[in-house]
């Protein structure tokens, strides 16, 4: 399979019966989508399950998809919807998951406090551990924005989430300030080394 095929070409091939085109789509996006979902759920098994459901759903509905040029947007929108569905099915109390104040515990913290941080498994040095710990302390909205930024421009995210771009820019700036504050409190050695 030619790796230089565009998303639109892959979708077109799939619609013409080429199942390998679907596999190429999976291989192209699996890491980014998995990392995005993992940033929200903070549990690798849960993220894997949601990812699997996502791509099976994509396979079953891709023949109906008509906006070939926005495959990436569709993937991440579906990923978000499935992740939110997961929380709705698994939350023990009715707590809004979105738009939480920075200082409130998110429902994620309640559900997954006892879950081992997935990133801690991979961390080899104290700096990585401290930074990932700080990222884990962000709210779900903040983690999601940071994860989406690896794949989309601010303008694209604003369009996907139907929010003003200024709102996202302010949120991102506040997130950076929060990360700095967390590192100062929890990892002073990292803070002093890199952020002073």
């Amino acid at each position: 399979m030619d790796k230089k095929l565009t998303d639109a070409q892959l979708v077109s091939r799939f619609k013409n019966g080429d199942s390998k085109a679907f596999e190429e789509i999976v291989l192209r996006y699996q890491a980014h989508v998995y990392t995005y979902i993992l940033s929200i759920v903070k549990n690798p098994d849960t993220a894997s399950d949601i990812c699997q459901d996502l791509f099976v759903k994509i396979f079953r509905t891709l023949h109906k998809y008509n906006e070939e040029n926005k495959l990436k947007n569709w993937l991440f929108t579906l990923a978000r919807n499935l992740t939110m569905d997961y929380f709705r099915k698994n939350s023990k109390r009715l707590v809004p998951l979105e738009n939480q104040d920075e200082d409130e515990f998110s429902l994620l913290d309640t559900i997954s406090d006892n879950s081992p941080s997935p990133l801690k498994v991979l961390i080899e040095n104290a700096q990585k551990e401290a930074i990932n710990d700080a990222l884990g302390k962000l709210s779900m909205d903040e983690r999601e924005l940071v994860a989406l930024k690896d794949n989309f421009t601010f303008a694209e995210i604003a369009a996907m989430q139907k929010k003003p771009i200024g709102t996202l820019l302010s949120k991102f700036s506040r997130t950076l300030k929060k990360l700095r504050r967390i590192l100062a409190q929890r990892s002073p050695e990292v803070y002093n080394e890199y952020l002073q």
Binding site: A31, T35, L38, N132, A134, L135, L176, L179, L183, L195
Partner: peptide, 14 residues
Amino acid sequence: TFNTIAQDKEVQSL
């Protein structure tokens, strides 16, 4: 802060 965070963020594979 951004430069410190960005260098250690990594994309993880399924």
